[in-house]
Design a protein around this nucleic acid. Structure first.
Length: 278
DNA sequence: GCCAGCCTGTTG
DNA sequence: CAACAGGCTGGC
């Protein structure tokens, strides 16, 4: 479910409520949610920070961390002390804090994972991440370099690849390609370099706008306090197939790229012109 | 690279 | 009933 803006919104909503609290206990309600249950005991440890890279959340302690990936339907919800915890069959894990509050992990599809680590790079997926899309060390040069390792991929597939840039998922890839006027199903090496530059320059403002609006909510996604986001009101193409392009009025089309539902405006995102000569 | 698989729920 | 869903992994 959540991509960078949603995970960042969750992080911002939870941080002031949990920083400085100590862990009283960790409960799991399914076996598979916690990949390494016996690694380290978090009990008594103080939460120093809640960090994010790409779509990964990291609850940081001294000398240890709890890494959380929400995958498709995961939610991380703060319950204040005494707040009635409604019966919910999809709660997979719970972290109790020393002020009587807790963090509940709700995850209908059970793809989400918690992992206790000493260092984040013990997780293979995390270790391979490219730069976070909103980090300062994400510049055009490194972006172009990483993209060039996937010249023959569809440009959308390369953007979905978390080793190229960390944080983009299906929604924001489609929206970013629309804003950059690039068809999702052309090869990386078919994108004119000037277009790639536009794409890079559109990425940060789009993601910051989405964070500012609290992410995109269709049905599942809410932040750490159960609040919905509003970026769905800004979507130009995602889930808008058959409707009018906000720019030119052409009907938005839907196709499949990299195994994912993909929307684009056939007029605003045209096939690249064939170069004359060779 | 692509595609099935992981799960469950919703939608057509 | 089948197809699809905001992600990632592993096998070919």
């Amino acid at each position: 479910m959540p991509e960078l803006p949603e995970v960042e919104t969750i992080r911002l909503s939870l941080l002031p409520l949990i920083r400085g609290k100590r862990i009283q206990g960790l409960k799991t309600y399914t076996e598979e949610v916690l990949e390494n249950p016996h690694e380290l005991d978090l009990k008594g440890r103080e939460i120093r920070d809640l960090a994010r890279k790409g779509k990964y959340l990291r609850l940081l302690f001294e000398g240890a961390e709890l890494m959380i990936h929400l995958r498709m339907t995961g939610k991380l919800l703060h319950r204040a002390a005494g707040e009635s915890k409604t019966e919910n069959p999809h709660i997979r894990a719970e972290l109790d804090l020393d002020d009587g509050s807790c963090l509940q992990f709700e995850d209908v599809r059970r793809f989400g994972r918690w992992k206790i680590l000493r260092s984040p790079d013990e997780d293979r997926g995390y270790a391979q991440l490219g730069p976070d899309a909103l980090s300062d060390d994400f510049d055009f040069e490194s972006f172009a370099c990483r993209l060039s390792r996937h010249k023959r991929s569809h440009v959308k597939a390369a953007l979905l690849n978390q080793r190229v840039v960390a944080g983009l998922g299906n929604i924001y890839c489609d929206e970013l390609l629309y804003r950059s006027r690039i068809r999702p199903d052309i090869r990386v090496d078919q994108v004119p370099p000037a277009r790639l530059n536009v794409l890079f320059r559109e990425m940060r403002p789009m993601l910051e706008e989405a964070v500012g609006l609290g992410g995109t909510s269709f049905r599942d996604y809410v932040d750490g306090l159960g609040k919905k986001g509003n970026f769905q009101l800004s979507l130009a193409v995602y889930r808008r197939e058959g409707q009018a392009c906000p720019s030119c009025g052409t009907k938005i089309e839907k196709t499949t790229v990299a195994g994912r539902g993909t929307r684009f405006c056939p007029r605003c995102q045209p096939e690249p012109r064939i170069k004359k000569g060779k």
